[in-house]
Nucleic acid binder design. Sequence first.
DNA 1: AATGAATGAGAGTTCATTCAT
DNA 2: GATGAATGAACTCTCATTCAT
Lengths: 197, 197, 197, 197
Amino acid sequence: MTQHRVPEERRPANEGRKAAARNRAALVDAARAIYSEHGLNAPLSAVARRAGVGQGVLYRHFPDREAVATAVLEENVRQVERTAAAQDTDLPGVLGVLTWHLAESAAFIGALHAAGAGGSSGVPAYAHDLSERVERALRAHLPDGHRLAAADDDLMIAVAMVSGAVTGPAREQRERRARAAWRLLGVEVGPVRPFAE
Amino acid sequence: MTQHRVPEERRPANEGRKAAARNRAALVDAARAIYSEHGLNAPLSAVARRAGVGQGVLYRHFPDREAVATAVLEENVRQVERTAAAQDTDLPGVLGVLTWHLAESAAFIGALHAAGAGGSSGVPAYAHDLSERVERALRAHLPDGHRLAAADDDLMIAVAMVSGAVTGPAREQRERRARAAWRLLGVEVGPVRPFAE
Amino acid sequence: MTQHRVPEERRPANEGRKAAARNRAALVDAARAIYSEHGLNAPLSAVARRAGVGQGVLYRHFPDREAVATAVLEENVRQVERTAAAQDTDLPGVLGVLTWHLAESAAFIGALHAAGAGGSSGVPAYAHDLSERVERALRAHLPDGHRLAAADDDLMIAVAMVSGAVTGPAREQRERRARAAWRLLGVEVGPVRPFAE
Amino acid sequence: MTQHRVPEERRPANEGRKAAARNRAALVDAARAIYSEHGLNAPLSAVARRAGVGQGVLYRHFPDREAVATAVLEENVRQVERTAAAQDTDLPGVLGVLTWHLAESAAFIGALHAAGAGGSSGVPAYAHDLSERVERALRAHLPDGHRLAAADDDLMIAVAMVSGAVTGPAREQRERRARAAWRLLGVEVGPVRPFAE
DNA sequence: AATGAATGAGAGTTCATTCAT
DNA sequence: GATGAATGAACTCTCATTCAT
């Protein structure tokens, strides 16, 4: 038993090896879209369907559901880090990029949320990592007397707050709300954009 | 814990009725506890088990999973409204009570989040209602020149922000973080407690 | 997401609480039959289908695939133990009953096999227990000078051998082959029957 | 380990051919190792990986999963046949070689088991063939008055029995148990070794 | 009214087999 | 010939919801 595979009459084509990279990218994109619409718990089958590949392909590229999420968020964090590492950046600049990603990616918000500074119970491990990387990127540009430098975790609390301001609302409202949030915090934000330059 | 049960029946009816009311309350309490431990997706069977009743009873009182969540949150909002309606209240007082509920109830946070001011896509309808009721309760006490009175939705954005600051961290850290969040917003909060009196 | 359940138009009857015990028995019977036809790896869905119940029922009664197997085998071992514990039994009598169950239940054979005396690698834990219980039951009746009392594990090796003689052949041949096996071992077997009395 | 490779090509052809033969052998060896560790249901992908080739190569050499198993077992049987065909062999000698293969190759055991003399239901066809070939090899050396010559299938039953004694236990225990089994059958076994010279 | 068993649709994951390169 | 990605069916297990008792 356990093996009944029928020879399969119509098999929808195997685009060969070239497709691999394309598929991985398609999966990440699909995941971002699905997450944005349905949250981080959306069924992986939906992601695969949206990417136009079989579920097996998804599992070939990502061992489990966590890996999919990580891949999606990785890009967001990377942009923030990249921006922070650039020559001519200042805090507002980095915050602008961070804000763009918060507004763009519901999954990002969720993960940053879940992490916070608390860190314990059911929060997935990767959420922590991401959160810490974002913190490091920001702190590097934090002037000594800055509003958010007062207490140790003011920085991450502020990020979580903006993140919170932005959860829920439809895509279009998010940027406006994010700006409003930073304004309420009395912090200056640079141009909101996906990356610096 | 968290047992602010409203007298469900003015004049005690027969045993059946009393039991029904008791069960409903037990279910709501159980749901709050379970949600707090396992998130809003926890199985309803777990709620029923914790409440010490059969699953049928749960369905007698609540038509579906959404109704259970609503019932839990209803109480949180009600306390805020009640506080706002009290004679001798001011904004810090109401915020204190709101903050207590945010820190206490993970589900509440989630719902407030989900709602925000934006409102459209996948946000459950009841989240909106709750959010609006909280806003009304707060706005009643908002002095004209207040920080959060500048733009129309500054108020709700601020609530969402505090809410965001508080998501994720373990229970114990939440109140501290909530206070830090309000501080960053430059807003005064009264004593954090379940209800005003 | 994660929740799409449609109200389900035609639901095939819920026979109520009475059915529970009946269902459990039906499941064990079905499992025995399926195991006998397809081996211990047969899909649980096949077992549920054969028992005429939904898969959920199966999982209500047995937490996982191992539990199903255990339940089936438990009965076989129990009969052997019962026989061994009876007043007027001797080794041939117990062997007769053991032989009946070996011939009857392919799953039993498999489990006894898997256990053997070796015991280590991938052998499921329950196989060991079963094997040991059978050994205890037999050893109680083993006279000092008996052929199978020479080395410590001769007894279990002999059982494994008969078990081996009986694996594979269709049901009808099994009893004959089991008898032949015991004969080759020079051991007397009593009447082959499901239980003593 | 267990590398009794038959020269596949008499006169070395081009590199392609040589590689093909080498791959086939590597696959069979890998399969034997994997089967021994994970049983006959191990994923074919594991076999290919272990052999250091792509899965496509596996399918080039073997049409399906059954063919892989057959190829592995073929070698075991072949050694037994070869031994039986040698000039200076007697029954104990052949049994010694058979025993070695039983102890060595879990898959061999399984197949011999599955076959037995009965034969009908779910037993794969190749198991039968193998079993019959083993029987022929042994019977050629069976003296008239021998213990295992009494009934027609005593011989195969005995083999199945030893095979049964050896299933399950970890590799190291198998040879000891196999010897114990033959002893209980009152049959003499020669040196246990992979082939007779 | 309460109980808790039953149902069955999926969700997650694995793997035999095919096929472009 | 070799490679390894793609496919998708099958399998295990979970849980919202219904309903006989």
